[in-house]
Nucleic acid binder design. Structure first.
Length: 256
DNA sequence: ATGGTTGTGTTACAA
């Protein structure tokens, strides 16, 4: 079972890239972020034609998350449980083939300090609470998406430049580590314990050509899911194409 | 350097 996460930066602008990726990579589950459209505007028909069930949580202009799945989508949950007052469309969760899967788009949080950074930290606190609940259920689960967190300096091409960036701030990193300390596994680091491997490159300044990137898209696995993890990779190919998203897909394979 | 990307949706804001 291949599960991929991809911040597409507008599903409307990215539809040709997404459709060719579904053909080429053929994920069993695709978790998309930054749809930038309401549910009614999601290109449901084009994606269903590729053989996917679809669940979306959209919003006008900003944010928006979706789950695409070859298998039926069960027990759909819209929004982060316990954070019902959040009006931004940043979380969707469902069960697919007996695996609980959360698709998240964490707030960017810049500039720091400020209201946006406070919102990011509050959002992460609620995510930790949700992760604790899922851990207690002892089921196979994955929390994947655009975390907007560089876990360590090695996940950033220029840590000094990002010293005060919300992606690298100690407050963001400590909350990310809280998730790991609950027993969650960073699927990517299971196979590549160290090194510069990025999932986002800014559109500006030739960042992609210079490999000036950051690793901020993650798949975190519960112990029961990590037990059956067989692969995890960053697929750089989509980032090199015309009209690319600024993020590239990250995927893992479970023996399920 | 007086620059600089992309997307949304109207001309500023978010990333």
């Amino acid at each position: 079972m291949k599960i991929a996460t991809w911040n597409v930066n507008s599903i409307k602008a990215r539809l040709p890239r997404v459709l060719e990726w579904l053909d080429d990579f053929s994920p069993d589950v695709a978790l998309l972020q930054e749809l930038k459209c309401v549910d009614e505007a999601f290109p449901r028909m084009e994606i269903a034609e590729k053989g996917y069930h679809i669940a979306t949580h959209g919003q006008k202009t900003y944010n928006g998350v979706a789950i695409l799945s070859k298998d039926p989508i069960e027990d759909l949950q819209i929004g982060l449980p316990g954070f019902e007052e959040d009006i931004q469309a940043r979380y969707i969760e469902a069960t697919i083939r007996n695996v609980r899967i959360g698709c998240l788009y964490l707030p960017n949080g810049n500039p720091t300090p400020g209201e946006k950074f406070d919102y990011k930290l509050r959002w992460m606190d609620h995510l930790v609470v949700r992760a604790k609940e899922l851990i207690a259920s002892e089921q196979k689960f994955i929390l994947a998406g655009d975390y907007n967190v560089c876990p360590k300096d090695e996940d950033c091409y220029n840590p000094a430049l990002f010293k005060d960036d919300a992606l690298c701030r100690p407050e963001s990193r400590s909350r990310y580590r809280q998730l790991l300390n609950l027993g969650l596994t960073d699927a990517f680091r299971t196979f590549k314990p160290s090194g510069p491997d990025y999932s986002f490159w800014d559109y500006q300044g030739g960042a992609w050509q210079k490999d000036n990137g950051v690793r901020i898209d993650h798949l975190l696995l519960s112990p029961q899911a990590a037990d059956i993890l067989v692969a995890c990779e960053i697929d750089r190919k989509p980032r090199g194409k015309q009209k690319a998203s600024d993020h590239t897909p990250v995927w893992c394979q479970l023996a399920a």
